[in-house]
Computed example of a mutant assay.
Amino acid sequence: MASNAASNSTSIVYISYLYLTEFTWTANILIPTWPAMIVFGFAANITNIIVFLRIGVNDNVTILLLSLSISDLMYLTLMTPTVCSYIMLIFAPYWPWPTHVDIGIELLYWPAITCYDFSAFLSVWLGVTRCACVAMPLQFKSVFTKGRTIKLVLASFLLAVSLRMPIMTVNRVGWRTDHGTNISYAYVEKQNRKAMTQINDILNRNSILYINFIIMIACVSILSFKLYQASRIRKSYTSAFTTQQTSEKSDRQGLSAKDLHVIRSVVLVGSIFIMSQAPFLISSTARLISDNFDIDHANRNRLLFFTFSIVSLTCSYLIASVNIFVYYIYNSKYKSELSSMLKRFKKPKTEA
């Protein structure tokens, strides 16, 4: 067992941040919701993976959605130690930690964020592929083939890992000895933190973040316009032609009813992505403008940094958990397969 004095002193430092007046509302309101989000996210993404596998991974959209569910599940799994540590710091600040508190908070944080980046890339590619489907429907199948989509997913994962590799080399497990008890305990040893943080800021917190955000806004705007345009076309032809003729006209426009359904789901997923990224984008912009907007500076900016960090993390847990509702509403195959699974699950109980 590690030294309680060392663990408790670190806990008190974190608690002093958490319970400052400007940070109380985020600590007391948002952080207690994290366990429920994590548990629901586990159940939702496992369900998504099972349903997509049962449907069959036969097209590029299903490949991307399956990969997104796997990535979100990995993210939530790796973030669980951080969530548990924050919860313990709030509700049991003097709990005797078996290791240094940083082990739970920081050790798996950057690998988890790498999975979150991977999910962001997949969400962006979903928007791009749907835009391509609208812009060039005839060439779409030949360009975005199943094989190329799989390669794209693998390349996106390698890109996410490569971009976060500098910052992931900072945290290492080291050992300290409490001279009072002569007991050794594990802690997070930081190496080259300042240099690697600057590289991470340039690559991920600014460049890649802005690129993803701008691309997703453009995709959502284009797809939303196409939905509005298709809605006007259908309304105008409904008043003059039969339902069959309206459907034929829709096909000639390159947007079938199935296409519109998929586009609506991507627009919703993209909109959720944009809203969830906004707090982190604001935080990154502020950090770019002011070097004092960080955890290491003892000033009022540190309080705002903690607030935006907690809000951003809450949004990330939310976006990794709520896609199941989008799939159920807008994906007919998903809804049919999930309903069938639930019926089979309930059937033995009914017979009993």
Rank of each mutant, 00 (worst) to 15 (best):
W97A: 12
V101M: 06
D102G: 07
D102V: 00
G104H: 06
I105Y: 07
I105F: 11
E106K: 13
L107C: 03
Y109D: 04
A112S: 14
I113T: 06
C115S: 14
D117F: 14
F118A: 11
S123A: 11
V124I: 15
L126T: 05
L126R: 10
T129H: 07
T129Q: 10
T129V: 15
C131I: 11
C131H: 03
C131A: 07
C133H: 04
C133S: 10
V134F: 14
A135T: 09
P137E: 08
Q139R: 13
Q139Y: 12
K141S: 09
G147C: 03
R148G: 05
A155I: 12
L163S: 04
L163V: 12
R164F: 12
M168S: 10
T169E: 10
T169C: 13
T169M: 15
T169Q: 13
V170L: 07
N171R: 14
V173L: 10
T177A: 02
G180A: 08
T181Q: 03
A186T: 04
A186R: 07
A186G: 01
V188Y: 03
E189Y: 04
K190A: 10
Q191A: 15
R193L: 14
A195K: 13
T197K: 05
Q198C: 02
I202G: 00
I202Q: 04
L203P: 00
L203Y: 11
S207G: 02
Y210Q: 03
Y210P: 00
I211A: 11
N212K: 08
F213V: 11
I214D: 06
A218E: 04
V220T: 08
S221R: 06
I222W: 07
F225W: 09
F225D: 02
F225H: 04
Y228A: 02
Q229D: 14
R234Q: 09
